[in-house]
């Protein structure tokens, strides 16, 4: 007897969720359009740049990779793009991972480098012989995991860069490959997107001059 009302309530709940999520999505897009206009940058809801095909390690994780809400333009002479990114992992249930990212294109051609945070599993891996690149600052090694070629890691991460990263640790992940630098954070509210862009610009300012002379564009 109760089956009918319960079914109707269930359908209504699903519809309400879909409508609510749609409204949130629209509100987010509207806020990003407004922000792009304020900053005199371009906006596209869809990824027309093939961002998912870029050679960053993050973009090879999981399935259903999707970039959207792309804001782009030039900052201090360097082309920059900010966007939402997500992928999912199928386990007992589908788990989505959502991020806000920013990348900059610079006059260099670098090998791949990835900077993430150390956690329990990476420390266990260290003890089992799966070493990442160890630099000369213990504080830095304890906080961050550096994956990539040793020579390039030491060239990119000089004393000033390491000191700055320790003090400006507001990222999930930083990747460098080819001419691109990517910074990744868990999905951000539109109002905080400019801070991500500024962080990326400060990272750019801390890149040692030797990187550009040792790894010039090809």
């Amino acid at each position: 007897m109760l089956f009918g009302p319960i079914l109707v309530l269930g359908i209504l709940a699903v519809l309400a969720t879909v409508v609510f999520q749609g409204q949130r999505r629209h509100a987010r897009t509207d806020a990003l359009i407004s922000m792009a206009m304020d900053l005199r940058l371009e906006f596209s809801m869809l990824d027309t740049f093939g961002i998912e095909t870029m050679p960053f390690a993050l973009f090879r994780q999981g399935k259903g990779q999707k970039a959207e809400n792309v804001i782009w333009g030039t900052y201090n002479g360097a082309p920059v793009k900010l966007f939402d990114y997500e992928y999912y992992v199928d386990g007992r249930s589908r788990e989505y991972h959502r991020f806000t990212c920013a990348y900059m294109t610079l006059p260099m051609a670098c090998p791949a480098l990835c900077l993430t945070h150390e956690n329990v599993f990476t420390r266990i891996g260290d003890h089992l012989g799966m070493h990442d690149v160890e630099l000369e600052y213990d504080d830095f090694n304890r906080r961050f995991k550096v994956s990539g070629e040793q020579t390039f890691a030491f060239t990119m991460l000089d004393g000033q860069m390491m000191e700055w990263l320790l003090g400006a640790d507001g990222f999930d992940r930083v990747e460098v490959v080819g001419p691109w630098v990517l910074v990744v954070r868990p999905r951000l509210e539109p109002a905080t997107w400019p801070k991500l862009g500024l962080w990326l610009e400060e990272f750019h300012q801390h890149i040692p001059a030797l990187v550009y002379t040792t790894y010039p564009p090809q």
């Binding site: 160890e134 630099l135 000369e136 030491f154 000089d158 030797l210 040792t214």
Partner: peptide, 20 residues
């Protein structure tokens, strides 16, 4: 200047390997 910077990078790598 460029060579000096490269020497310093190589030195840092060498010393990091020696330390380990």
């Amino acid at each position: 200047v460029d060579t000096e910077d490269r020497i310093q990078v190589s030195r840092r790598i060498y010393n990091a390997n020696v330390r380990a």
